[in-house]
Simulated assay, not measured.
Amino acid sequence: MVQGVSEIAAVCVGLIGLIGAAATTGLPMWKVTAFIGENIIVMETRWEGLWMNCYRQANFRMQCKVYDSLLFLPPELQAARGLMCCSLALSGLGLLVALAGMRCTSCFQGNDWAKTIILLVAGAMQFMACICVFIPVSWTGHVIIRDFYNPLLIDAQRRELGEALYIGWVTGAFLFASGVLFLCRRMPSDKGSFDVYHPAHLLGYKPTPSKPTLTRYHPISSVPSLQLSVRGEMPPFH
């Protein structure tokens, strides 16, 4: 019962992580224009994402433009594209694999060993998806903070952490929790056709004592009585 609840919880948490990874990949708010200086009124806000740039004017008009070339992006965003796509693929495939190993499904019914191995594989895929999310999000955040305090850059070139980065960190935490729930399982003792002998049973084994076989023995009183019985004569009664 407890394992069934943990499996459902792991799938639900992994599904939230998958949705968060998709949102992090698609949102353009990875880098946001930094409002530095004494100007209170800012007429334009710039967002930089993995796939496009967006400009918002006076909080009501926004225009987005897709990048013309991948080489136009900085190195951290180029790596983020591939890693985030890998995270989506690993998380989605891991959830599909986990469905085959759950107790409530009919796949591999009666084979607890195979179901446990399938769930362990799904947990490993969730961990890999978690790593693929944390690396680009943390790398991009490090570059933004480094450039923000770089005295050689002007204020117009400085950026702040966008909302997509925070969603990415939360997504990585959900994927990590899903992987932990999948991996925290007790290995079954039954491996299908293989026999497993428990040491406790071997130590507590007591052989039953065998009873000796009794053979009925009829002694012969005397040799003359044997001879009389052979001849057909009755032995005399004393």
Rank of each mutant, 00 (worst) to 15 (best):
D155V: 03
L50A: 12
C64R: 05
D155M: 04
I131M: 13
W51A: 12
L50K: 11
T45W: 00
A21L: 06
L71W: 11
G37V: 05
W47R: 13
E44S: 08
P28F: 01
P75C: 01
W47Y: 15
G92V: 01
G123R: 09
I41H: 06
T33P: 02
L95S: 04
A58V: 12
Y55M: 10
C86I: 13
L93K: 04
M43K: 13
C107K: 08
T24R: 08
R103L: 07
C85G: 08
L71P: 00
W51G: 04
I118D: 08
G92E: 01
L83E: 07
R61P: 00
E76M: 06
M128S: 10
C104K: 07
A114Q: 13
L15S: 14
T140I: 14
L93F: 14
C86M: 15
Q78P: 00
Y67C: 02
Q63W: 08
E38A: 07
L50P: 11
V13P: 01
D68Q: 12
I135C: 06
L90A: 13
L88F: 03
E44L: 08
I19G: 15
P75I: 05
G49I: 02
R146I: 02
N150I: 06
Q126A: 06
F134R: 06
S138H: 05
A89T: 15
S87L: 07
G82F: 12
L152C: 01
A23M: 10
I145W: 00
M84K: 03
C12T: 15
R81S: 06
R61M: 09
E38N: 12
G14Q: 02
I19C: 14
A100I: 10
N53T: 09
L18Q: 11
W113T: 00
C86F: 15
